[in-house]
Amino acid sequence: MTKIESDTEQENTSSNHAKLSRFLWPIIFLALIGSVTYAYLKPTVMTPAQRAISLESQVKCPACEGQSVENSTAAIAVSIKAKIYQDVLKNESDSQILNSLAATYGQDIYLSPHGSSYADLSWIIPTVLIFLIVMFLSGTLLNRKYNFISFVKKKDLQGSESKSKSQHSKKLLYIGFSLVAIGILYFLGLALGLNLPGKRNTGSQFSQTQLLEIANFQASVGDTAGAITTYKEVLTENSSNTEALTEEGWLISQNGTKTHNKNYVALGQALIEKALSYGNDNAQAHLYLGTIYLLDLHQPTLAADQYKIFLSLNPPQNLIAASKPEIIQAFTSLGEPIPSSLR
């Protein structure tokens, strides 16, 4: 008796419910889809440290039992972490960084296997098997004349029913549903960061020259950190921009000199050397490199070599004038004659 009462009560509420429902569901869908899409499209900038950690988690620690470099404190893992971080700061691409490790440790340093047919099979096998399971189960489920997974033939159960139009329209509905499902899965894959076609690229609104100007300005007013970030932004677009590489390297090495951190000096040096590897006629780079050798690394011989190349490239006078004392210091400490262009 109480049963019936509660049922009528439910019916009343459910009719109110239905009105509310018609009004609220579109909003709910909009909110959910909107917020997920917004979050997905919102550009995310990974800091170098975050990028380094994500790379570390993809590499096996060679001295451990199946741990990733990220999770290990073994000596070699610490070294690999440092190398990855430096490579990230040098703006090398993910695949460049990982490939350089695989070149000396072998392909099995990757924790997600790739690079051989054996590795590809490890992805293909589960995918195919899951596909088979889904086909098998959805086939038996959607085509209701099949008894579930017991292999009863269609005709045993079909009886005299003939296919009606509604069944055809239902089939269309299934096709629609599966297309939507595939779409959702694809979107999920993208959201998970898989390399599917259509992957979003974050680009900046400024042109490279504009960015370089901004960076040079930042450097000139003493905003070193800002300048380094802007140079990096240039380099994410074009990793072989020699000007950005040179200037960033110089700023980083200067930073290292100030904070007495040899790693930064070495990193700055590496960046400048990388710039030189794209073209040996970069006078500015040779000048910076010479100064680093002279003042930070105390190797006047190497410094003088760099200065000689610098002078041979007919640099603008203001550049020579700015670094005159260092160049003279390098030559005199070696007892070599001071080149005529300096006098």
């Binding site: 997600s112 054996y118 490890s122 589960p126 998970l192």
Partner: peptide, 28 residues
Amino acid sequence: VGTVYPIIIEHFSKTISIGPPYYDTLTA
């Protein structure tokens, strides 16, 4: 597959490592 496949592959004197990135991508 991720657990057993590397053992099977070792039999053909190949080594691959299957770790978190593999499982995360496939199961997520």
